[in-house]
């Protein structure tokens, strides 16, 4: 089975939210409440248990005469956020029940019939993707349309995206396409165009990569995402050291009093 991936090229995103809606319709998710946030045109806020594709809107004051495609300034950009399906996934590492698994397509999948709602995954995701639904009791996130992929279909969001901002396919092909695209954008003068795929961190790269203009932080893509389990070794060592110090201290205290 080939490992599939998303490449979300936000320079092609028109902010239409078809991806959000297609995902919710396919997966029969609930709505997030009807609250106006005033945050540009974004009223769903973030990915969470009932929003698995979320379009971020980043506004900067436009320059007169320049559209958003001008190299000079990316004045209003849109990017569809999603679960990153990390190569080394924090949620998967943390899950105590084995509910979270790696599928044959390389995606990270929460089995809803196994999940016990402990929410360890929630605190372990460096991107804040997976979330517990307190009404339901379980944790939910993007399934990478596992059910659709098994039938040879592309994920609902990729299918719905009218401008092919969301590209779906073989991970190696997409990694190559991403490089080509970034070079192309930069050759057009967009020096701020970049690929977000943190392969150097403990996450070891994503199966959902992003091409954005400007600082990726604006699109909820942190600079050094780490899988919390990388701290395990040093955490155990620190604990061992602390335990050792405490034991020594305790011994010293008791031996001292025993002498008197």
């Amino acid at each position: 089975m080939t490992t599939t991936a998303f490449l979300t090229d936000s320079t092609l995103c028109i902010g239409c939210k078809a991806c959000e809606v297609a995902c919710k319709e396919w997966n029969e998710l609930g709505d997030d409440g009807h609250t106006w946030t005033g945050l540009s045109y974004d009223n769903t806020g973030a990915v969470g248990h009932s929003t698995w594709r979320h379009v971020k809107f980043v506004e900067a004051a436009p320059l007169l005469g320049f559209g958003g495609n001008a190299p000079d300034l990316a004045s209003w950009t849109f990017s569809s956020d999603v679960c990153k399906h990390c190569e080394v996934a924090g949620c998967l590492e943390a899950c105590p029940t084995g509910a979270i698994v790696r599928t044959e397509f390389g995606g990270v999948f929460v089995q809803p019939d196994v999940c016990n709602g402990c929410a360890y995954c929630v605190v372990s995701c460096p991107f804040g993707v997976v979330q517990k639904n307190s009404d339901d009791g379980r944790a939910f996130k993007c399934t990478f349309c596992y059910d659709r992929q098994k039938e040879g279909l592309q994920p609902a969001c990729a299918k719905a995206c009218p401008t092919e901002s969301i590209k779906f396919g073989d991970i190696d092909e997409l990694k190559l396409a991403a490089q080509v695209r970034v070079e192309e954008l930069q050759s057009r003068g967009m020096q701020d165009a970049q690929l977000y795929d943190p392969t150097e961190t403990s996450v070891k790269g994503l199966h959902a990569m992003f091409i954005t203009r400007g600082d990726p932080k604006q699109y909820n893509l942190p600079p050094n995402p780490e899988v919390p389990t990388v701290y395990l070794e040093s955490a155990w060592k620190s604990s061992a050291l602390a335990a050792g110090v405490l034991v020594l201290g305790g011994l010293f205290a008791f031996l001292g009093s025993a002498r008197r």
């Binding site: 028109i14 902010g15 436009p62 007169l64 005469g65 320049f66 559209g67 958003g68 495609n69 849109f78």
Partner: peptide, 14 residues
Amino acid sequence: RFTRTSAMADIWLP
């Protein structure tokens, strides 16, 4: 207005 269309354009004029 600068709309989502302007965001995809090369030139925008209000």
